[in-house]
Design a binder for these strands. Structure first.
Length: 423
RNA sequence: GGAGAGGUGACCGAGUAGGCCGAAGGUGCUCGCCUGCUAAGCGAGUGUACGGUGAAAGCUGUACCCAGGGUUCAAAUCCCUGCCUCUCCGCCA
């Protein structure tokens, strides 16, 4: 949620910033709703004030044994009036909030302007494309030939966009999870957490998935819980409704979780292989940062995520998303795109974002400056570190041999019983 | 699933024959004083949110004692529902 005061006082600035996202967002009604809301607040509070002082008078009269029946009579009518006004206020407030909750975050000034992913700016390249003296295969062919990925049986068990990992495939997935967790905990200073994989509606609203993107989420029957689409949701909500101390910041968490997404808008897209699944594993990095240096923290977060691919020695590039490609809650995002020789493309493997105070305002994550007396909103950040399924793809395709076997990257061997080759 | 107990401020913990309770006391924290350091001591302050006013500090109003309803002129205190925690039993990984 963006700052309501900003909308109240600088609606033009807000609209101009949002326009850079490409689509137009209707902030038109917000100013009027806000005015109406505040008018009603003033009116009801005035009446309540009158009522409160009358209550005191009645109490005094009662105590001295005097008659208070006419005051009590008046109190009754006052109560009715307040009730009516409160009803109006409730609807006005709900409407105002409902509209406010679907307004996206304002892009940071450093974000390149553009309308689609074609306008994203490549800001880093690392490593080189490996060369092969044979035609490199896509991971789905490699996986089926080695019998470590079974898409057909997963479809039988559940449906499309699921995968059954087998044998060394399952081991590789598990190894990557442990490798990444260890790296971020031991070398990058994150605290490991293992959160619930289902969350309630409030948490989903706190990070911005709701109310706008409900059709993307798996909802449970019987309880109002959702399967998480990313660990960002439970982990960012760890400090929802809390007031932190300045010297606690930055707080850095790393979490492994499975992620569940409906992929409602992606029919027919990436139907083969591990690329786009309804369920996938991910190791996620989350930071709660001081607003003064949250953009530095974003650079650090990005480096932490990149480090995974560096240690695996796999070529990638980093792009800064343009204003038109930015996610709903994000003020600035870097995508790490890994090279997949079997498909001859770069594919997003991590998305690192600074949400500034957008999620913090929704989830009420605040802090108090040293010696300060006011609470302020923290900045929240997160990034994949990394998506596991897509890392499996990257390892398989980059480390494949002509005979269809896969060399295990050195960094992973301790996590795979010192295995050198998957065959 | 059955039986019982409970949910008060950063934390602990008072407060139930309804009214002056945003809430005693303690701890913690902040500031000041004091002691050559450490420990201790003394004094003051210390909830959040949303409004109004102000350049700001501040002043001021309203709400909030798990959440949502209800009774009442008036509820932390009474009633109902839900959620959560704890104990015992059952069941279970």
């Amino acid at each position: 949620m963006i700052d309501p005061k900003l909308i109240r006082e600088n609606i033009n600035v807000v609209n101009a910033a949002l326009a850079k996202r490409g689509a137009s967002f209707d902030t038109g009604g917000l100013v009027g709703l806000d005015e109406r809301r505040r008018g009603l607040i003033q009116e009801t509070e005035k009446l309540k004030n009158e009522k409160n002082s009358l209550s005191n008078e009645i109490a005094k009269l009662r105590k001295s044994g005097a008659d208070a029946s006419d005051k009590i009579e008046y109190q009754r009518s006052l109560g009715k009036k307040i009730e009516d006004l409160a009803q109006d206020l409730k609807t006005a407030e709900a409407e105002w909030e409902q509209q406010l909750l679907v307004v996206p975050n304002i892009p940071d000034g450093s974000v390149p302007e553009g309308t689609s992913d074609e306008d994203n700016r490549i800001v880093k390249m690392w490593g080189e494309k490996p060369s092969f003296d044979f035609e490199p295969k896509a991971h789905w062919d490699l996986g089926e030939n080695l019998d470590i990925l079974d898409f057909k049986r997963a479809a039988k068990i559940t449906g499309s966009r699921f995968t059954l990992y087998k044998s060394h495939g399952a081991l590789l997935e598990r190894a990557l999870i442990n490798f990444m967790l260890d790296l971020h905990v031991r070398e990058h200073g994150y605290t490991e957490v293992l959160p619930p994989f289902m969350v309630n509606r409030t948490s989903m609203t706190g990070t911005g998935q709701l109310p706008k993107f409900e059709e993307e989420l798996f909802h449970l029957e019987g309880v109002d819980y959702f399967l998480i689409p990313t660990a960002e949701v439970p982990v960012t909500n760890i400090h929802a409704d809390e007031i932190l101390k300045e010297d606690q910041l930055p707080i850095k968490y790393v979490a492994y979780t499975p992620c569940f997404r409906k992929e409602a808008g992606a029919h027919g897209k990436d139907t083969r292989g591990l690329t786009r699944q309804h369920q996938f594993n991910k190791v996620e990095l989350v930071k709660f940062a001081n607003p003064d240096n949250s953009f530095d923290e974003l650079e650090g977060l990005l480096l932490d995520a990149e480090d995974v691919l560096k240690k695996l020695n796999i070529h990638y590039r980093v792009s800064a998303l343009c204003t038109g490609d930015l996610g709903f809650s994000s003020a600035k995002t870097y995508d790490i795109e890994v090279w997949l020789p079997g498909q001859n493309i770069y594919r997003e493997i991590s998305s690192c974002s600074n949400f500034t105070d957008f999620q913090a305002r929704r989830a009420k994550v605040r802090y108090r400056r040293q010696g300060g007396n006011k609470t302020e909103l923290v900045h929240t950040l997160n990034g994949s570190g990394l998506a596991i399924g897509r890392t499996v793809m990257a390892v398989m395709e980059n480390y494949q041999k002509a005979d269809g076997t896969i060399t295990v990257p050195e960094a992973l061997r301790p996590y795979m019983h010192n295995m050198e080759t998957i065959k």
